[in-house]
Amino acid sequence: MDLDLAGRTAFVSGSTQGIGLAIARRLADAGARVAVNGRTAERAEEALAALTEGGLSREQLIAAPGDVTADEGLEAALAAAGDVDVLVNNLGIFGAAAALEISDAEWQRYWDVNVLASVRLIRATLPRMKEAGWGRVLNIASDSAIVTPAEMIHYGVSKTALLAVSRGFAKDAAGTGVTVNSVIAGPTYTEGVQDFVYQLVDPALPWEEAEAEFMRLHRPQSLLERLIRPEEIANMVVYLSSPLASATTGGALRVDGGYTDAILP
């Protein structure tokens, strides 16, 4: 399969670690110039160093630091990236909290980071894509968008909203050659998720046992019975970013290890 993205520029929000960094690596492997985004220049440069140590050319990579939840940071990050052909809204926060103890301020923070930042980045990049007649917008959602977790309903609600954001903007881009989709990521291993797992299981357990205990007790629907690896999410993102996915838009595609017990999302 030819996933050639040569000549395209991709912007991946929150891409200095975890799933975002894996997505940046795979997009660059497919030939794209990739703008790596983090809150600070130091974090972005550290991510670029990790990518070049992994064999990527520095010429393929752009440091695009900036807090995309704020106007100034968003503008600075996109200015560094230049014209964006592929937008991947990966930035997100999560964490366990008792449902009745989530404050208004925390609900608002999850909305601002997990939903509104994506909307603002789409508004900033979609017009040029439509004018050019080609573009890709990918929003990284979660199984929690469909199966709301009792231990973090504010996160689940924000990811449900992101599915609607994707469908709505896909309609706005209808007939232009631009596709807009969501990727529903299942329980995935990252450093942040490791910390989250230890919030829910015995922190004295070795990691392999903690992962198995977490999946058994808290994610028993998973057909993989293990955490997904970031590269497995990235593979779907790169396909959807490629010319081969030209007829896939307005969709919510699952990379969830069979976690969601449904034929369709």
Rank of each mutant, 00 (worst) to 15 (best):
G250D: 06
K130M: 11
R254M: 03
D143M: 15
I23N: 01
A98M: 04
L223C: 02
E191Q: 15
A105N: 04
G55R: 07
L205H: 14
A96H: 15
A164Q: 13
H154F: 09
H154A: 11
Q221L: 13
G20W: 04
P187H: 09
G133C: 09
M129T: 10
Y259V: 14
G14Q: 03
N181R: 01
T16Q: 05
V68S: 09
R39G: 10
Y239M: 11
G20T: 10
P127N: 11
S158H: 09
V119T: 09
L74K: 07
L27P: 00
A210H: 10
L5S: 11
V255P: 04
T160K: 10
G135A: 11
I146T: 14
S118F: 07
E72Q: 12
A132S: 13
L3W: 14
I263Q: 13
N235G: 15
R167H: 11
L51A: 12
G135E: 01
D29E: 15
I102Y: 07
A245Q: 01
M129I: 10
D261S: 09
R58D: 08
A30H: 05
N114R: 07
Q17I: 00
A124Y: 03
A210T: 09
A79I: 06
E151P: 00
Q17G: 01
A164S: 13
E211S: 12
L217C: 14
W107V: 06
R8I: 00
I233N: 11
L126T: 00
S144A: 15
R109L: 10
A49K: 15
A185S: 11
D104H: 08
G175P: 10
A173I: 04
A97C: 09
A132F: 07
A185K: 02
Y155M: 01
G55A: 05
L87F: 09
T249L: 13
A49W: 05
G55M: 05
P203N: 06
M1G: 15
L87E: 06
I93Q: 03
A245R: 02
L227I: 04
L200T: 05
Q199N: 11
G250L: 07
A50L: 15
M1W: 07
D261H: 04
Q108M: 11
S142G: 05
Q194C: 07
E75K: 14
A141K: 03
V84P: 12
I233H: 06
T69D: 03
T179E: 00
V178A: 08
W134Q: 02
